[in-house]
């Protein structure tokens, strides 16, 4: 059957997102898109830290309460995944590190004081959290979980899985730059995914051709403080409380967007050492160095489809 591409644009998780699907007719495409977007909205309503009645807000509001909060299986799996990332990154990937935002205000050109940093670090550490795979306890008042770098990517995977389950073979979901390719264009050609230049978010530094799987980026795109000519980016080291240095942005290709997302985040947090680590991980990737020069790892499939 001749299929056409249908594009759906929607807002969720503080981003404008795009779902592109190939279907035989508009009715079919809309039915699939509606279900997929509903699933994403549901994830947002559960895991947004901005929504007052989300499960995450409930967990965060329980901080200091030793009874904690009982969670469902999906949340348990997300927490287990986050714990795995924490362990695999030697504590660099930490979903409790979001509290650093309280002292790093990137809208004002002002650095936090050493004592502010030291006080905030007290509230950080997945190892301080009590997690028994069904109940979570944030033992200290002021502690907070943040699924940034996990939930948006997971939402892209969830959306792709749903679309595939509903018979879509060709399509792509783009959640504000976190992408899961459901399958190539019907003629077999890959999707061309633009990678933003960190200096100029409006321009595209390169494109990645992808037929299947996830692509996610992590980096310092705009928010930064410049003091005495030194740039302070918004990727913060949970151990020091200070911005990491070495890389400007990293994009990783992986079978799942979730894995691409956490891998790119860990690489950014590792700074200069992140490149060697990525080589060891063995996934295709590209990165921008501090002066925004682009490097592409050799077997990242960057080429134009001919």
């Amino acid at each position: 059957m001749a299929m056409r591409q249908y594009d759906f644009s929607f807002e969720a998780m503080a981003c404008v997102n795009e779902l592109s699907l190939y279907a035989s007719n508009k009715r079919q495409a809309t039915a699939v898109a509606k279900k997929a977007i509903d699933a994403i909205n549901k994830l947002e309503s559960r895991y947004s830290r901005y929504l007052p009645d989300s499960l995450l807000t409930r967990i965060n509001e329980s901080a200091g309460d030793t009874r904690g909060v009982a969670v469902d299986e999906e949340t348990a799996a997300l927490l287990n995944y986050s714990q795995t990332c924490f362990e695999q990154s030697d504590g660099m990937f930490d979903i409790t590190s979001g509290v650093l935002r309280r002292i790093w205000n990137f809208r004002e050109n002002k650095l936090p004081t050493d004592s502010e940093v030291a006080d905030t670090l007290q509230l950080i550490g997945w190892d301080k959290v009590i997690w028994d795979e069904s109940r979570i306890v944030l033992p200290l008042t002021g502690m907070e979980l943040d699924f940034g770098g996990v939930v948006k990517e997971y939402a892209a995977d969830t959306c792709a899985t749903l679309c595939r389950d509903m018979g879509v073979r060709h399509g792509l979901i783009n959640m504000g730059g976190d992408i899961h390719v459901i399958g190539p264009h019907p003629d077999g050609s890959p999707w061309k995914i633009g990678i933003q230049s960190p200096d100029d978010p409006g321009s595209i530094a390169t494109t990645v051709n992808l037929k299947h799987g996830g692509l996610a980026s992590s980096g310092d795109y705009q928010r930064s403080i410049v003091i005495d000519g030194k740039r302070y980016g918004h990727i913060l080291n949970p151990k020091t409380g200070w911005p990491v240095e070495g890389l400007r942005a990293v994009s990783v290709v992986a079978p799942q967007c979730l894995i691409a997302g956490s891998t790119s985040t860990i690489a950014m947090l590792k700074g200069e050492a992140g490149k060697r680590w990525l080589d060891e991980v063995g996934l295709p990737y590209l990165w921008f160095d501090e002066s925004s020069r682009l490097f592409i790892k050799d077997d990242c499939s960057m080429r134009e489809a001919s």
Binding site: A39, L43, E73, E74, A77, L78, N80, Y81, Q83, T84, C85, E87, Q88, Y154, A155, D157, T158, C159, A160, T161, L162, R164, D165, P190, N209, L210, K211, H212, G213, V253, A254, P255, Q256, L258, I259, S262, T263, L283, P284, S301
Partner: peptide
């Protein structure tokens, strides 16, 4: 480790998706 943790999530399909 990451794959094992990821596939426990209901939204992630176990079907292998090859890298291009």
């Amino acid at each position: 480790h990451l794959m094992a943790a990821a596939v426990a999530l209901p939204g992630i399909s176990v079907a292998a998706t090859p890298i291009d």
